[in-house]
Computed example of a mutant assay.
Amino acid sequence: MGEFVADWPDDADGGVFHRLASAGFDFSREWSVDYNVDFESWPPADEALDILRSEYGELTLFPPDADGEGYVQFQIVGPVTYERVTSVQRHVSSEMQPFGGVCESWGVFH
């Protein structure tokens, strides 16, 4: 495989992509990407959870604890690209905004 070169923006998501590339991440395969949705108040509204379930399937709820605020997590399997990750974040944030939710963090185990 040749050298991977990408021009990601200088933002938080672009920084994650730069770190993944530096660690030898294989962008040519599909991965399970975890997306986290933070809510202003806990627990999230049932309607918000129903919307997320209908689009993304199984959800994992992480209630607030001594280490931080609670969040809801879902996974999407597919290629890991800047455009795909940021598109999912924008879409979910837009849908969750009426419920005090925002999707600004994601991760992939490799």
Rank of each mutant, 00 (worst) to 15 (best):
F25H: 15
S93G: 10
F109C: 05
F17C: 13
R90K: 12
N36Y: 09
V92D: 08
D10M: 02
G70R: 05
S54T: 10
G100Q: 04
P44E: 00
Q73R: 13
R84A: 11
N36V: 00
G101L: 05
A48E: 04
T86C: 02
D11M: 15
E40M: 09
D34S: 15
A6G: 15
P43K: 05
G68L: 07
V85N: 00
H91G: 00
A45N: 12
A45Q: 14
T81F: 00
M96I: 09
A66I: 07
D65C: 07
V108P: 04
D65A: 07
P98Y: 06
V5W: 05
F39G: 03
L52A: 02
D65V: 04
R90T: 11
P43T: 07
F39N: 04
P64R: 05
F62L: 04
D10K: 08
E69N: 09
Q75Y: 13
F25E: 08
G78S: 05
Q89V: 03
D13F: 10
S54K: 14
V88K: 01
R84K: 06
H91C: 00
Y35F: 14
F4T: 12
R19G: 01
I51N: 01
D38Q: 06
Y82M: 03
A48G: 03
S87H: 06
R29W: 08
V77C: 09
V72C: 03
Q97C: 06
Y35L: 02
A23P: 00
F17P: 08
D11L: 11
G14N: 11
H110A: 14
L49H: 01
F62T: 13
V72A: 05
Q97T: 09
E95G: 09
A48P: 04
L59T: 07
D26E: 06
E95R: 14
F62P: 00
Y56H: 12
G107I: 02
A66Q: 12
L52M: 03
P44K: 00
E69R: 13
M1W: 08
H91L: 08
G100C: 04
Y71G: 00
D67M: 15
Q89P: 05
S28W: 14
G24D: 07
G2A: 13
